[in-house]
Design a protein around this nucleic acid. Structure first.
Lengths: 207, 207
DNA sequence: AATAACTTACTTGTCATCAACAAGTAAAAA
DNA sequence: TTTTTACTTGTTGATGACAAGTAAGTTATT
């Protein structure tokens, strides 16, 4: 730290530097990608030395895991807030809405998270476990909402909640992959289509 | 090359070494991932020196692009063979079948290709253009099959071929992502579900 | 047909970059 | 004052890139 070195407690200092480094990492990841983002650049962009990132997070993988988990936590928050106490098809549609809103509000963070999510299929990615954990939690939540829809009689009884949840998660992940490769794809139309299909595919036909 | 240096033309030599290096790259990518796969390891596993890969492909990115394009070409072949002259829902279902067969027949190649496909969203990935090109070609082919289904009266007229094709491609990519992260997911059930949904979602209801 | 001249396939030497880690300094807490 | 913590600086090994070299294959000349 240079210049205006305000008087801070150690706790405040670590929290601040951690946040600044995470933000710097997100912007660098989006600008340059994972391989070209150096620890030195992150440290320096956030106003510290080239060595602090390693010191704090242990390794590049440690930092990437932290970045992933931070954004994933925000994503979970957004979903939970928007879904609230809804269940069944409504809950799933709200998930779609939350995602769309996330794309609009924080494209950088979302892009950084998906950069990490997708690169986590690399056997050498040490933060693989973090991603897999988040994925499992998502599917569990989705399956629960579907089960609730079944008990309320809204969703067809023959629907296998686990399989349907897995497919829904796949659609979302696939769509975000294609958005990440080509941001010009008609995202809003695709989300509309998914919302509509959720109704047709899962709901008990009204008499 | 050592030992049994058979008498070969230069053309044969380059073709052979290129193939051996590509195969070595696929196996190393699947074993260790992109970052941990060194050019030296590829050269040596294929029986050459540490320097040949760079010499032949120019750079690591050049090699990765070549590997991607090789597997992508095989994928396109498989799809075209299986789809044949089919159109509409049948064609799309055959695509699903081709993919499932690819997973069963050549999981390593498919995994390597998807490793590269997904890591291509990284802004630093120089083979991004290769992946984007293949993606666009896929969507074009899918949209064409859907359009043909519409003209034959099999597929609902209100279906937007471009959007539906994009969504179908997303589903496939998303599913493969989840398979890559967790090979234990119920792939065959999911493919069945997709096959079935293609019928419900696109086809004109029979009278 | 033989050999010389050239071109191409492949190898080895070297450098710059970067992640990792060790050792140091300064600021805060005890 | 002593100890702990936040952060910086020095150094090393690994690796991608490239330059320079060697040997094998091809073409031209006689």
């Amino acid at each position: 730290m240079t210049a205006e070195a305000k008087r801070r407690t150690q706790e405040e200092r670590t929290a601040l530097s951690e946040q600044l480094m995470t933000e710097a990492a997100v912007s660098l990841l989006v600008e340059r990608g994972i391989a070209s983002t150096t620890l030195a650049a992150i440290g320096e962009r956030s106003g510290y030395s080239r060595g602090l990132v390693t010191h704090r997070f242990g390794s590049k993988a440690g930092l990437l895991a932290h970045v992933h988990d931070s954004v994933a936590a925000e994503w979970v928050n957004r979903v939970n807030t928007l879904v609230g106490r809804a269940t069944g098809v409504t809950a799933l549609q709200r998930v779609v809405d939350a995602l769309y809103q996330f794309i609009v509000d924080e494209p950088e963070e979302l892009r950084a998270m998906y950069l990490l999510r997708y690169s986590s299929i690399d056997p050498g990615a040490e933060f693989r476990a973090n991603v897999a954990k988040v994925n499992r939690a998502h599917v569990r939540a989705l399956a629960r909402w579907i089960e609730e829809g079944k008990t309320h009689g809204e969703i067809l009884p023959m629907v296998d909640a686990r399989i349907a949840a897995e497919l829904f998660a796949s659609v979302v992940d696939g769509l975000l992959y294609r958005w990440a490769v080509d941001p010009e794809i008609p995202v809003s139309e695709l989300y509309e289509l998914i919302r509509a299909h959720l109704g047709y595919a899962l709901r008990v036909p009204s008499p």
